[in-house]
Design a protein around this nucleic acid. Structure first.
Lengths: 340, 340
DNA sequence: CTGAAAGCGCTTACAG
DNA sequence: CTGAAAGCGCTTACAG
């Protein structure tokens, strides 16, 4: 059913019906009630394309993923967070998949030129991220999940990756550990660089330099954790503690430690970063896993809200947040064994 | 830039430009080339809303998720598969999140009434799924990921859950196991019911009845696997083999076995269903994990293709596929220890 | 408080 | 092979 038919059933003009539905003030309350009830009854809803043409707003937020690895467990939780907030405004998420950086840029061009979305969410930024300049020039509103050095008046939400790892490292140092390994994300990704700085800063406070042999970078998979940890354990002077960038790499690291005959918590301390997944909990591991915790789902929900605010006219420069990360001590961390 | 401006720059009518862009045959090749090149050069793309209004097609496929648990690891892989196929046609995925079944039905009503998507993908069907009748009455084209008894001329793709678990159970029986536990999905979900039937059928072939104490149902989380497995191990006559419905529940089950002092592969055999996640591989576990394997990403890609075919006019009744599932034997399965 | 009509940017029958 | 114009279903300035 379209507006014309719907309005004629109510014996009103399209104008009045449209205004009643959009909440304009100049409609008589009784008329509005009648329209609203009828819309529910007949299941009338404005055609999105017509609405998009007339108003320029389509009620969808875009997000682009690299088809391969990027659709990981973080992604689904983050999207779950976005969704819970956006559904309240009946805004949907438009997901596009790409194979390369170049394809990603082209997708933003396509989304902008065809006016498919009202805004996009940029994630996993690089220090100097070319997507910022592109989106700015396309005049496609956006919010960044993470931070970047790229200039511009955009909004962003990030967790305090620096302090999370600084805290975790300091805690291990306080327990007497001096050889602390680090499973980090890819170099060039802002979050990984921030974490590296936090690691370095904490070590430096104890006069310790970063040992390149004891830190590794990669995608956060179980295998990455397993392989890198095996490498660390094979070192002449193996670490007594490890920082893992995610639950997935922590699982692999724990297994490598176990297989080598050592015990997590007793022989080697472990702290992982936990994005809080519903299907794998640090409380449920053996031993329970100490973590730096920050719900990526909550971040998604807040970013959704920031996007909606941005579209409402809130200046991007006021939409910037750094979320603190909590260090949660469980049983995978202990005093450094003195016999090393 | 809109058509009007773009056409005038080319000194052509909007009609001709539109036809050239849409690949209509009645345009002179030279003209078409000129238009295509200029479109690339100026970055011209038709406005999606205008296109949607004029043609009724919006170039997006909808999928609805329950906000809470359903956004699991399966989801992201499946969407990755959808995306890789859809991107080739520049079709996007419109994701909506809901809290309840009722809200899900309303979302389909909203998507249909507002013509936001060309089709939707239904997933995780129940045996008698009310969504089928609704989508049919809404005339919203759809493909089901999974099967259902609900009547109708719709297309679907499912894996052979029955045979996967039947094979796995038979293999364990062949190894001498007689007490085989089963970590299954929620009752009422078709895939879980099919798996139960496969389990039951294989056991029955050896004259064994299903022992309700040795099978459990739930969401596929690490914790579910851990808790249920602990329960099985506490039984007076504990199982000598276990089937886990997913990698996540398998991780929990393996830990429960380990913590109890038993060894996977030696004391207890384990076979898990593996949807093939990039961040956790059965080859990399200790011991390596025997699985029933089926790439949920590949299923997503094929379903995307089926949706595109459906929209092209292929009859839904010809779009039905059951994919076989491969049993991959690794080191987590062994001969039943005779000392029990 | 309500309505007639222009306009958003396309496609496509119709005419040539 | 090309073009002028109607129509898709809305919103919103303008008029009353």
């Amino acid at each position: 059913m379209n507006l014309k038919e719907f309005a004629s059933r109510l014996a009103l003009s399209q104008t009045t019906v449209s205004r009643a539905l959009s909440g304009y003030p100049e409609v008589k309350p009784a008329t509005r009630d009648r329209v609203l009830k009828a819309a529910l009854e007949f299941g009338y809803r404005p055609n999105t394309s017509a609405l998009g043409l007339a108003t320029g707003r389509v009620g969808a937020i875009g997000i682009v993923f690299r088809g391969g690895g990027q659709f990981g467990p973080h992604t689904s939780e983050f999207m779950g967070g976005l969704g819970t907030r956006l559904q309240q405004d009946e805004v949907d998420i438009l997901v596009s998949t790409v194979d390369s950086s170049e394809a990603e840029l082209n997708t933003y061009r396509r989304l902008a030129a065809s006016k498919r979305v009202d805004a996009v969410i940029l994630h996993s930024p690089f220090t100097d991220d070319p997507r910022i300049a592109l989106l700015t020039s396309l005049r496609l509103p956006f919010i960044v999940h993470g931070r970047t050095q790229a200039p511009g008046e955009f909004g962003w939400l990030d967790i305090d990756n620096f302090d999370a790892i600084r805290q975790a490292t300091s805690h291990l140092l306080d327990l007497g550990h001096r050889r602390i390994a680090f499973l980090n994300g890819h170099r060039g990704r802002v979050f990984a660089d921030h974490r590296h700085e936090g690691y370095q800063t904490a070590l430096a406070a104890h006069g310790i330099a970063v040992d390149p042999l004891m830190s590794g970078n990669g995608e956060f998979t179980d295998e990455m954790g397993f392989r890198l940890m095996q490498g660390f354990l094979a070192l002449e002077q193996r670490p007594t503690a490890v920082l893992a960038g995610s639950m997935m790499s922590a699982l692999g690291a724990m297994r490598a430690i176990r297989v080598s005959g050592l015990k997590v918590g007793d022989d080697i301390s472990l702290i992982a970063h936990d994005d809080v997944f519903p299907y794998i909990s640090p409380d449920n591991l053996v031993p329970t896993l100490s973590t730096t915790r920050s719900s990526i789902r909550a971040a998604g929900a807040r970013i959704a809200e920031m996007v909606l605010e941005l579209l409402q006219g809130t200046p991007a420069s006021t939409l910037r947040e750094v979320w603190p990360v909590e260090l949660v001590i469980r049983n995978s961390t202990g005093v450094c064994p003195s016999d090393l």
